[in-house]
Write a protein that binds this DNA or RNA. Structure first.
Lengths: 165, 165
DNA sequence: ATCGAGTATCTTGAAATCAAGATATATTTC
DNA sequence: GAAATATATCTTGATTTCAAGATACTCGAT
């Protein structure tokens, strides 16, 4: 089945036959798929009165394990937003009673963000819903194909995730 | 090489062994890679004094071919933003002299957005730079692997791109 | 001990996005 | 051909994000 990137690449080959646009076959699909996923996630989370950005922060804390706390800096590397954004997110989640700020006992500059019991429950509920939705999207592929796709993507993400960033 | 999603999946398996988190192996990688690409693109475009959103609109028009014009609605399906966002983008690009609005001769509700000569040049310059950057990122994969990856991703994007949306 | 460099977080102000609804024109149905 | 419905774009107001810089603390070298 054709997709929008097929049309986009064909258009470039017509308009700019001098350029090799092969990279777009992969990376435009990644960007566009991510936008589609964002929309789908927004819809899925609205059933739980959660925004995608709230989910990202809450689940980062959730999977850290008891006592469900991380520094803002650790949350940055998980969510790939800027520090100003994270401060703002923590403020808003604190107001909603889903997380709380604690002083870091080992570094007086630092802060720890901890999930409240309600925050933990909300994260768990929303995760189950998300996984169901994602499974439906991935039903287009066999198990083996999903494994292959994950492995190929890992080769592209690893350089970003490991070095500076 | 391990990436952040490997760590994330391992953490979920420890914390929620009751859940099957396999979908995250693919889709979390897609979302995270898209964010990394956004950052990289922002950097690459800043050499040309272009924002990613400007690039997206200008190149959509550019690859439509002469006379380089599309309706706002067509631009929506290319860029996956809401109509309010697109109106705002067209306003700002018009102020910068990179596009202009024309009445649609065949539909009086409609508008056509046309690239100016300067807009066209800016799009062409930035595209070359982007392709160079993307080629470097994709150097992690062989040509065959890139083809495989593109084909697998197409199966996921096609349902979004073709039906309702 | 003190200096200086490095690190962690927060503040600020501008810019961009979205959802929802308003307006104007087209198209279909009867 | 009038009414009802659908479509295309724009407007509005609130929310979210980012870049840049400020603040406060830590740590190693002298």
């Amino acid at each position: 089945m054709e997709d929008e990137v097929d049309r986009l690449v064909a258009a470039w080959r017509r308009e700019r036959p001098d350029l090799d646009v092969e990279p777009l076959e992969v990376l435009s699909r990644v960007s566009r798929l991510a936008r589609h996923l964002d929309r789908a996630r927004r819809l899925a989370f609205s059933e739980h009165q959660l925004e995608p950005w709230e989910f990202d922060v809450l689940t980062s804390l959730r999977r850290a394990g008891a006592p469900y706390q991380l520094s803002p800096g650790q949350l940055l590397t998980q969510t790939l937003v800027t520090s100003g954004t994270m401060t703002n997110r923590i403020d808003r989640l604190t107001k909603k009673g889903l997380v709380e700020r604690l002083p870091d006992p080992s570094d007086r500059r630092g802060v720890l963000v901890r999930l409240t019991p309600e925050g933990r429950d909300r994260a768990d509920e929303a995760l189950a819903g998300l996984l169901a939705q994602e499974r439906a999207i991935l039903a287009q592929l066999s198990r083996a194909q999903r494994g292959e796709l994950a492995a190929l993507l890992r080769r592209l993400t690893a350089p970003f995730d490991n070095v500076p960033g």
